[in-house]
Computed example of a mutant assay.
Amino acid sequence: MTSSLDGLLFAPAADPEGGEVGTSTRFAYHERDGRIWAEYSGGAIERGHLVGTRDGDRLDFRYVQLRRDGGTSGGHCVSTVVTLPGGRLRLEETWEWESQEGSGTSVVEQIDG
């Protein structure tokens, strides 16, 4: 299993098709005893939260977000934690909306705070 996500910041590597987060969105992760959670904001997202579990290098979580236009949305995501050369982490994600139609994939990578 790769190192803890606790206290790490992540940003999307690209704007995911069909998603609402973008390259200006920042995710602040926390982890304790197999539980993960994060706060995020930036771009079209005013405020977002995710909560879930970690089993090895697999994350399974639900997310909910408030957009800057006042709308809300949420869904389910499964991510794989990958260690990049140099030690930074990448989350390779497969997600699906539960509040609307659509699904997709995305990649977020660890950034310096």
Rank of each mutant, 00 (worst) to 15 (best):
Gly102Gln: 11
Gly52Asp: 15
Thr80Trp: 08
Glu93Leu: 04
Ile36Met: 06
Tyr63Met: 02
Asp60Gly: 10
Thr23Ala: 07
Arg88Pro: 05
Glu17Gln: 13
Leu84Val: 11
Ile45Glu: 10
Glu101Tyr: 06
Tyr29Ile: 00
Arg90Cys: 12
Thr80Ala: 15
Ala44Val: 05
Asp55Gly: 01
Arg26Glu: 01
Arg68Leu: 12
Ser99His: 04
Val82Pro: 00
His30Arg: 07
His76Phe: 07
Pro16Glu: 13
Gln65Met: 10
Glu46Arg: 06
Arg62Gln: 10
Glu20Leu: 11
Arg68Glu: 12
Val21Asn: 02
Arg67His: 10
Cys77Phe: 00
Gln65Pro: 02
Arg88Tyr: 12
Arg62Cys: 12
Val51Arg: 08
Glu101Asn: 04
Glu20Gln: 08
Gly48Asp: 07
Thr25Gln: 03
Ala28Asn: 12
Glu39Met: 01
His30Phe: 02
Glu17Val: 15
Gly56Met: 14
Gln100His: 05
Val82Ile: 15
Arg35Val: 04
Thr72Ile: 15
Ala44Gly: 06
Trp37Ser: 05
Arg88Glu: 06
Ile45Trp: 08
Gly71Ala: 13
Gly43Tyr: 11
Gly102Thr: 11
Gly48Trp: 01
Gly70Ser: 12
Glu96Trp: 02
Tyr29Asn: 01
Thr94Pro: 02
Asp60Pro: 04
Gly22Leu: 04
Val51Pro: 11
Glu17His: 11
Gly86Asp: 09
Val64His: 08
Leu91Ala: 10
Thr83Leu: 15
Leu66Thr: 04
Asp33Thr: 02
Val81Glu: 09
Leu84Ala: 12
Arg32Pro: 02
Gly71Arg: 06
Glu39Tyr: 12
Arg35Asp: 04
Glu39Pro: 00
Glu101Gly: 07
Cys77Trp: 00
Val51Ala: 06
Glu93Gln: 13
Val21Met: 07
Ala28Asp: 11
Asp55Trp: 03
Ser73Asn: 10
Leu66His: 10
Ser41Thr: 07
Asp57Glu: 15
Glu17Leu: 15
Trp95Leu: 09
His76Ile: 09
Arg88Asn: 01
Gly70Lys: 09
His76Pro: 00
Gly70Pro: 14
Gly87Lys: 13
Tyr29Pro: 01
Gly34Phe: 05
Arg26Val: 14
Ser103Pro: 10
Gly48His: 00
Leu91Gln: 10
Gly86Cys: 13
Gly18Thr: 12
Gly74Asn: 09
Thr94Gln: 09
Gly34Val: 05
Gly18Leu: 12
Arg35His: 02
Gly56Cys: 11
Leu59Ser: 00
Arg35Asn: 03
Leu59Cys: 07
Thr72Met: 15
Leu59His: 03
Val21Gln: 01
Thr94Asp: 11
Ser103Gly: 14
